[in-house]
């Protein structure tokens, strides 16, 4: 039912295979998809959650990690309220790429976007990135940090709920960036009919 009070756009980015799609499916559908194929371009999911008794609709854009889709995925950063940057704790290269991702985010996303660093696949035995390394990195770059396992459903719900809470707080304090016309349409008012975006529905 269309009685949500907030609409937030969340975009997931990160190297191919780190588990972005699994995180989204775990959260929206409550399952861990076996044999999840690589995402092509961009995928879209929606989920409405409740924060403090208020309905919050999360529009989740799950992007492909593969290089060749980089240009189309970048075009989705711009309207994001929150960006989830995912790496695989059992795969050093996915962590090493984080600075590159941050550069892209810097370039294409709104500078006030909420940024969350996520180390996924905590269920794996062969961890390569210790927790504190990820934490440090996040702190240094002003990001929230969380470790998750899409497989074991660990911290997945929490990840999205905290985003919803944080964004709602920002919205209520009117801290959420005021995207003026010159920046183009970013908030709900200017995106599409029916979106009320981050703003309170009247």
């Amino acid at each position: 039912m269309e009685d949500y009070k907030f609409l937030f756009k969340v975009v997931l980015v990160g190297n191919a295979g780190v588990g972005k799609t699994c995180l989204v499916r775990r959260f929206t559908q409550g399952l861990f998809p076996p044999g999840q194929g690589a995402t092509i371009g961009v995928d879209f999911m929606i989920k409405t959650v409740e924060v403090d008794g208020e309905k919050v609709k999360l529009q989740i854009w799950d992007t492909a990690g593969q290089e060749r889709f980089r240009s189309i995925t970048q075009s989705y950063y711009r309207s994001a309220h929150a960006l989830i940057l995912v790496y695989d704790i059992s795969c050093q290269p996915t962590f090493d790429c984080l600075p590159d991702w941050l550069r892209e985010i810097e370039e294409y996303a709104n500078n006030k976007v909420l940024r969350i660093l996520v180390g996924n696949k905590t269920d794996r035995e062969d961890r390569e990135i210790p927790r504190h390394i990820g934490e440090d990195f996040a702190q240094r770059h002003g990001m929230y940090f969380l470790e998750t396992s899409a497989k074991e459903a660990e911290n997945v719900e929490r990840l999205f709920m905290e985003i919803a809470v944080e964004l709602m707080e920002q919205a209520k304090c009117k801290e959420l960036p005021k995207y003026d016309g010159s920046l183009g349409p970013i908030n709900g008012k200017t995106t599409s009919v029916g979106d009320s975006g981050c703003c309170l529905r009247s």
Binding site: G37, G41, D43, W61, F69, K189, S192
Partner: peptide, 21 residues
């Protein structure tokens, strides 16, 4: 003039990349 199509462009573009099994 206040009608915006951002969502539709985003969603239709995503559909263009559908990876349905």
């Amino acid at each position: 003039y206040h009608r915006r199509y951002d969502f539709f462009v985003s969603k239709f573009s995503a559909m263009c990349h559908s990876n349905h099994s």
